[in-house]
Design a protein around this nucleic acid. Sequence first.
DNA 1: TAGTGGTCTAGACCACATA
DNA 2: ATGTGGTCTAGACCACTAG
Lengths: 252, 252
Amino acid sequence: MSTSNSRASGFADQAAVYAPLYRQIKELILLALQRGEWKPGALIPSETDLAGRFRVSQGTVRKAIDELSTDHLLVRRQGKGTFVATHHEPRAQFRFLRVVPDDQEPVPGVSRYLECKRTRAGSEVALQLAIKPSDPVVYLRRLLSFSGAPIVLDEIWLPGNLFKKLTFERLSAYSGPLYGLFETEFGTRMIRADERIRAVAAAADAARWLKVGPGTPLLQVERLSFTYGERPVEVRRGLSLTDSYHYRNTLT
Amino acid sequence: MSTSNSRASGFADQAAVYAPLYRQIKELILLALQRGEWKPGALIPSETDLAGRFRVSQGTVRKAIDELSTDHLLVRRQGKGTFVATHHEPRAQFRFLRVVPDDQEPVPGVSRYLECKRTRAGSEVALQLAIKPSDPVVYLRRLLSFSGAPIVLDEIWLPGNLFKKLTFERLSAYSGPLYGLFETEFGTRMIRADERIRAVAAAADAARWLKVGPGTPLLQVERLSFTYGERPVEVRRGLSLTDSYHYRNTLT
DNA sequence: TAGTGGTCTAGACCACATA
DNA sequence: ATGTGGTCTAGACCACTAG
């Protein structure tokens, strides 16, 4: 991989006839992350080390890490080294939690789990998770409260084979971010998510949990989350009260 | 600015005691853009040119342009050159238009302007635009339709001094993206926006325009847009029907 | 003092667009 | 053939952290 530049052919779907060296290096690091060679939160080898290992210049490794860093898969810390990103660190906390109070600073909130059962995917969820309708899924329901008031009612569907040992007890005993639990206990790291947001009228059940009248306008957030390799691994539907909370977003 | 590295002191608010060379270059390019030295859509000098002009290496200019490019202020085109970004090009079209149809591809939509008047800011809008409540603003109302059906009702407030010549006729005659008009006719380019999203019940007036019953849940999007130097220049409140449309977002 | 990431340079070569 | 952005290298030095 020196100056003579042996490019990977990469016959992947459609494009990618040509991939620059730093992207190949990125891919190698990505694979190492995916197979858990370095755990979340851990220090990875220095840029110089990796450069030697992959037989490329330090600048090339650097550019690969640059991209992984903007992808939130790695975190650089000057003077210390480069670390595997984790959903446990505070900076990642509000990346996937967009419902925040109108006037105060964002706060974590408290989860109360209402349900945790195993069932079959069904056609809709199966389609999204790219599995068969008869395949097993874990179905969760939880109520998120901020300063004592119930604000978000979430339904969550997870592939059964990836979350075999997920139980109601395990969830209730845990307090940190849900994705943190998924990452450390089930080896599934959420990388990216697509959301569809709507306004809906509260059904009787949701209204009861959120302590409002049926028909109250609620913010519905449908989410599909992905792990490495664009694999869909979570379907989520949240219903939020938005009197004194809102979904915040920045367009750049 | 050669190896001896004369850093700008930058006594700006709080931080920025130290700024790397490429950031200083970025700032210089930013100023050139801001004062309209290169118009939207225009070709800017090559990296080599700029390197010569600023007395730094090409790699340093490159890194500055890298950032401006991810900020969507410049667009690189290999073999052609680097261009000033514009809201007129199709790639920028859906950066600020997040309400899209559930199943089809995103489409531009058709605007019908309902109102365009001059008034005073009032306390709320003034606070957001960082002007005085007695300062003049332009107030707009428009209805956005997709394939014939009214979907979004927008209210827009703009600083009066920046949009002096904005008229109902000018708006109605125009068909492209609104930010495109602002950019070419009023020299105000929208860079970034913060949004707060809620579910609300349709008031009588909104219900009438969107052809639904009063009390129907609507998606309310409050937006504050910024131009160069984090200057707020637009307040917007949109109400959307989300039966067969939704607000799409990607968490990364 | 040593190690790590961060910046900057100079030069070579590749990929792409256009004339 | 020429000019532009894109990649890659090698080496020097700066800023930050920790033993």
